[in-house]
Design a binder for these strands. Structure first.
Length: 249
DNA sequence: AAATTATACAACCGCCGCATT
DNA sequence: CAATGCGGCGGTTGTATAATT
């Protein structure tokens, strides 16, 4: 419990501390944070040192206002990934996870607040009471299962718009066994999550998004719906291999 | 001009997954 | 297998500054 030590400094960093940390990293390189306080001669815990370096001192960190394209990308990636700030920041050169998170919380999150509630405290930044955060389950998602689920989901949707919940809480794959060996169940909320990823076009904070479905040509979507072609086209749903790996570790 | 309130963001805290012992 | 330590992450808080009353 390094944080409980009385000798460990907390709060804002001084220029002298910054200099010590910077010299230490330059000399020993990034990493081994548990050794950094001693090496640098700092009365700071390892986490404080790491955070200071990653969020402030590290070279090439971009400061100042977010450009429109950066904001657009944040919104799109947030739609895709949720509050996975480090991942989102990884797509924004020079921006840190903390920066992205702060920006989202101060500039974008308020767009999701229930403005109809007169009693809501704007400082609390709470989501609507009924807002449910949908998180994908990447560990059991396969290309094939996604496509089969999506196909089945769309069929259900087209055939009976009022019967989503009753259709089934779990969308069962045609040739699925519940043993997580490449096929899986996706419940309704997760299906909605995927649908949002695919069919997302909305205006947030004045930015007209060109998200997901707009980025994907209809012919590609048609191909995706064709199981024979799922192998290559699925990748086009993701920005690149790195994101694909996030969902398919 | 002073007091109050809102905003932005740096920093802390607790938790988690993983590796090592 | 359990305990421990580490790096890393997201949620939250503290506070300096800006805006408003």
């Amino acid at each position: 419990m390094e944080g409980s030590s009385l000798r460990v400094r907390k709060g804002a960093w001084t220029e002298e501390e910054d200099l010590l940390l910077k010299k230490c990293i330059e000399k020993y390189g990034e990493g081994k944070w548990h050794q950094v306080p001693a090496r640098a001669g700092l009365n700071r815990c390892r986490k404080s040192c790491r955070l200071r370096w990653l969020n402030y001192l590290k070279p090439n960190i971009k400061r100042g206002h977010f450009a429109a394209d950066e904001v657009d990308l944040i919104i799109r990636l947030h739609n895709l990934l949720g509050n996975r700030w480090s991942l989102i920041a990884g797509r924004l050169p020079g921006r840190t996870a903390n920066d992205v998170k702060n920006y989202w919380n101060t500039h974008l999150l308020k767009k999701n607040i229930d403005t109809s509630s007169k009693t809501s405290n704007p400082k609390s930044h709470k989501l609507k009471p009924n807002t449910k955060v949908i998180k994908p389950r990447p560990q059991i998602l396969s290309k094939r299962s996604f496509l089969v689920n999506l196909d089945e989901y769309n069929n259900n949707n087209n055939n009976n718009n009022n019967d989503r919940a009753e259709t089934s809480n779990n969308v069962v794959l045609a040739d699925c066994s519940d043993n997580h060996d490449g096929y899986c169940f996706l419940d309704h909320d997760e299906m909605m999550w995927w649908e949002n990823m695919m069919m997302n076009e909305k205006e947030v904070d004045g930015h007209q998004l060109q998200c997901s479905a707009n980025d994907i040509d209809q012919s590609v979507l048609d191909q995706i719906m064709n199981e024979d072609n799922y192998g290559n086209t699925m990748d086009e749903l993701f920005l690149d291999e790195e994101l694909w790996n996030v969902f398919n570790p």
